[in-house]
Design a protein around this nucleic acid. Structure first.
Lengths: 224, 224
DNA sequence: CGCCAACTCGTACGCTGTACTACGCACGTA
DNA sequence: TACGTGCGTAGTACAGCGTACGAGTTGGCG
């Protein structure tokens, strides 16, 4: 079999860093980040394990590239909207994307260098804040605050054993509540009951904090 | 060598789940979570690798226990203070602890069940909020918001390549600024310059968002 | 034609988590 | 005192990991 034929057989056309990273993301979505090994990834691409190393220097670089691809999926803030709508939209998009790729949030911890997509986002958000009238240092504060909230929320969300209100209802009654003795955890019981009655939706929960934060930032603008 | 003598030689006295997990935390702090293997941990304890499996069912359980030990280090909210001071104090403590054990934040992502220390914290914080006059569902919202901010901030902090203002100054001039072309990232350049001039301290940065969030929650209490 | 750069991959090494097994000591009982 | 019994310990083994090394094949260029 010729190298060209092998390349053709590689699932589609030929390998490339893009294809390698994209398939790695798909694999991590499907099997979790622990299920992502160079051999399995190569298998999914119809290639030998060592072939991957012509497109990524090592697994670390692969993980970096995966994280950056995820950042590319997040909507940039729109330039025509007012700052609150623009950043609100972006934050919602970020939460959705991070919920789609739960492994990404855990991967960020170990990576120290921001990828290009990450930089572009920071630039765009900072621009949005500055144009809205936030002083330089205040814009930095706002950036930290907003990103902290988004990432932290996504982190908590991935460590929930359920994703929707219905799943929560089933799980709460079956597993969660019984392991919380009323006398030791009265308040947790109270809120679990209340959540059960009210229905629980992560997306709504996210909006509460997001809007509260955006509203609290509003008066810190300097122009108008 | 007798089993008892072996136990004595195991660094100190005898193995126990506590000692195993504590040493694992120390090892992870020193070498990072990737440097933590059952063999290395056993070596640090003066034991054979397989001996550890009498105290933890598998590595997953070890990691769970490590995360919970970290939560134990975080100060519980004081019951005698007003709600803002109590939760402010707790949040500050949490950030410090998570900065001390950077691997913990990345570990939380994959763990679905909250450990006992985690539950105790949730209970105490919820109690604090309810006693301060937040309605049940509002207390849940506040809980999510505060935890999201703390975890998200810690997550961002661990992925910074520096820890103090001085390190930031050195690093910014040497590595960060040169790779940000002025024409592509004008706003990032602006804020990097401003941060450089103003000095940068993660602890202060954390307080800004924390106080903003606490202040925004204040009017949502129902009694007074 | 010869040559080279790009690309692919088989093999091998040292590491990982852990299943299985066997061994030795302390202890309750006779 | 003698003897099971059971618990704590660890040696060995296995499948799988990331990846260094080097050999193989190819298409394109002088």
């Amino acid at each position: 079999m010729s190298a060209r034929e092998q390349r053709e057989a590689a699932s589609d056309a030929g390998l490339s860093k893009q294809r390698v990273v994209a398939e790695a993301v798909r694999l991590a979505d499907r099997e979790g980040v622990d299920g992502l090994s160079m051999r399995r990834l190569a298998g999914a691409l119809g290639a030998g394990a060592m072939s991957l190393y012509h497109y990524v220097a090592n697994k670390e670089e692969l993980l970096d590239a995966m994280v950056d691809i995820v950042f590319e999926e997040i909507d940039l803030p729109r330039k025509d909207a007012d700052w609150q709508s623009a950043l609100r939209r972006r934050a919602i998009s970020a939460r959705q994307v991070l919920a789609r790729h739960p492994w990404a949030i855990g991967l960020m911890e170990s990576r120290t260098s921001a990828g290009p997509a990450n930089l572009r986002h920071h630039e765009a958000v900072t621009a949005c804040l500055r144009k809205a009238g936030f002083p330089v240092l205040m814009a930095t504060h706002a950036n930290w605050l907003l990103d902290s909230y988004v990432y932290g929320f996504a982190l908590q969300e991935t460590s929930l054993p359920f994703g929707t209100a219905d799943e929560f209802a089933n799980m709460a009654e079956a597993d969660y509540l019984p392991q919380l003795p009323h006398d030791e955890f009265p308040y947790l019981n109270e809120s679990a009951q209340a959540l059960l009655a009210a229905g629980y939706d992560p997306a709504e929960e996210f909006l509460f904090g997001l809007d509260l934060v955006l509203g609290a930032l509003e008066p810190l603008r300097v122009s108008a």
